[in-house]
Design a protein around this nucleic acid. Structure first.
Lengths: 335, 335
DNA sequence: TTGTATGCGTTATCAC
DNA sequence: GTGATAACGCATACAA
């Protein structure tokens, strides 16, 4: 079932059928009607491969995340797919498991990468070097702050300010031995949240005891559980803990309850991301809520603008900060 | 950068370059070496659209699920993406939100033209009529039991047996007023799990009190919370509740704890799906674990076999049952 | 083992 | 406003 056949049946040229299919304006209403009737009758669908070959575009956007089964990325993916669909694009989701090679390969349009018109990349392990070396031929939007002067658009929340606000809230409710779980040596996110946390402590004149600063390998429940358990088994017990994402916080919460440590009575727990799950833990978790819909909207918007070479799609890389807010629930006690 | 140019630079014909690119066997080692060198030097990458147009295949598999931010589907998606990647395919994930029209549309043709070589579809609202009418031109694997004689492969667990085993376990620990949350009038999954539940009750000579049989609109935490709350506010309090998925169970758990109802002391709670999340609730949730990896492996395997027209990829539709197991944790008390 | 030539289905460039 | 026709880049039937 090709455009040619439709043209033959409708008694017009392929050109005219193409015009109808693509909603070209200058087609006689009567002609359009007749052609459309034939299209419907024959159930004709344009061949995506042929169209791509001809136009050089695929209608595919890539979304690259560390892992789809992490609730934050699953929720983000949902939002991105919705946005892209609205803009007439289809989303291909790729998982990297934080493998730098895979992230790099996708950034540089490896085997699969060549297929996309554009890419939303949530890098976990990409270095400044990678970003500077990257000479991508297609538009790329990076999620996360712009740490180095690249040609890529960036979309992010203000992680430093968000973490600082979270820590300030804990301090404001009278907590004094405040711990942090989720520090990382490399990853930008972990470093920025640590920075905000430290700023709040310094500002309040509180010490940052090494025992209360916990590095983790991964931002998952198991790591949060392990880190909190280790902390509770030590001599210096925190009276509050700020976890750099919700999964860590859920693991930490479980560690507390398992040991009979009351939350928020003995320890206040604060998470980050505000995934759906934290509303249903017991106690429910306070968290920092990035405006996920805004992230998806802006990221897809920038990408589509560049792919379609719209007026707002040319020019230098943009750096967009979207809002976040502190969501207070039971785990941090009454304000 | 086309295959033609590579051929010109290498001083061979396009045919030879194509042979090298596609790993065709009968190429002189020396020729292969030289051509490969040119390919590397020029950074040549085959044009996916042209290849698709020529071969009629895209290397894309579609995965259609109700919603990516439901943990079960996120975890399933992750497994499917991993399997497909291993088989040299890329996965496009689509969400239907349980919209029958979208499911039907995707079953029949997929978005943006028939871009997929095959489809894994997890239907929520598709009717027998839809499946019988469907005259898909591409291979489709349906997740969920084969309720009507279609031409599609099916992959599923034995929902009736699984639900029955779960209920039997609750009965075996001495519970007598056993409730179920998650009944549905249409969806097959809900009906099959209800059937298994009822069988276990009947077998034990226990009544199925209407107050303890809860229908829900959606399989999410909020619905579980609402259903359990309503039940606890009534006169007949259950001493156990079997929720037809983990999200319902998490909502139910939260409802119990909010009201001071002890779990598992006053009420035992059992979930279904065994998503990562239920290991970290307090108390941790017992659940039925479908072998998700097996589901993904079989589904992608069947699909790829048919797409590649392998020996095991022809012939009538297959119906594959994969294993499940009961995972006992704190919420159902000691066995 | 490798070269030549053709066509996949579409859109775009020219005419009319 | 519409028709004829030429690419787009690749894989393969057929030839050599």
């Amino acid at each position: 079932m090709t455009l040619q056949e439709v043209a033959r049946v409708a008694g017009v040229s392929p050109r005219t059928v193409s015009n109808v299919v693509n909603g070209y304006e200058h087609v006689a209403p009567r002609t359009r009607e007749q052609v459309q009737a034939v299209i419907d009758a024959l159930g004709y669908r344009a061949n995506a491969a042929a169209r791509s070959l001809r136009t050089g575009r695929t209608g595919l956007l890539g979304l690259v995340v560390p892992a789809l089964d992490q609730p934050y990325f699953a929720e983000l993916a949902r939002a991105v797919v919705r946005e892209a669909t609205g803009a007439g694009f289809t989303v291909v989701v790729d998982q990297t498991d934080g493998d730098p090679d895979r992230e790099r390969e996708l950034l540089l349009q490896g085997p699969r990468g060549a297929m996309f018109d554009g890419l939303v990349l949530s890098p976990l392990a990409l270095t400044a070097r990678d970003l500077l070396d990257a000479d991508a031929t297609r538009p790329v939007v990076l999620l996360g702050e712009r740490t180095v002067d690249t040609a890529f658009d960036h979309v992010h929340i203000d992680n430093v300010a968000a973490a600082r606000a979270a820590a300030e809230h804990l301090i404001g409710t009278g907590r004094r031995r405040i711990a942090a779980i989720g520090l990382q040596t490399e990853a930008h996110t972990g470093r920025q949240r640590a920075e905000g946390f430290m700023l709040a402590l310094a500002e309040a004149g509180l010490p940052a005891h090494p025992h209360l600063l916990r590095y983790v390998e991964a931002y998952d429940r198991a790591s949060g559980f392990a880190a909190m358990s280790a902390m509770l088994d030590g001599d210096l017990r925190p009276d509050a803990v700020f976890c750099f994402n919700d999964m860590l916080a859920i693991g930490a919460l479980r560690a507390c309850l398992t040991r009979g440590v009351r939350v928020p009575g003995d320890v206040a727990v604060m998470g980050f991301d505000d995934v759906e799950e934290v509303r249903y833990t017991t106690p429910s978790l306070s968290s920092v809520r990035p405006d996920r819909d805004a992230i998806a909207r802006v990221a897809v918007g920038r990408l589509v603008a560049r792919v379609e070479r719209r007026a707002d799609g040319v020019g230098p890389a943009q750096d967009v900060t979207v809002p976040h807010e502190l969501v207070l629930r039971e785990s941090t006690g009454p304000a």
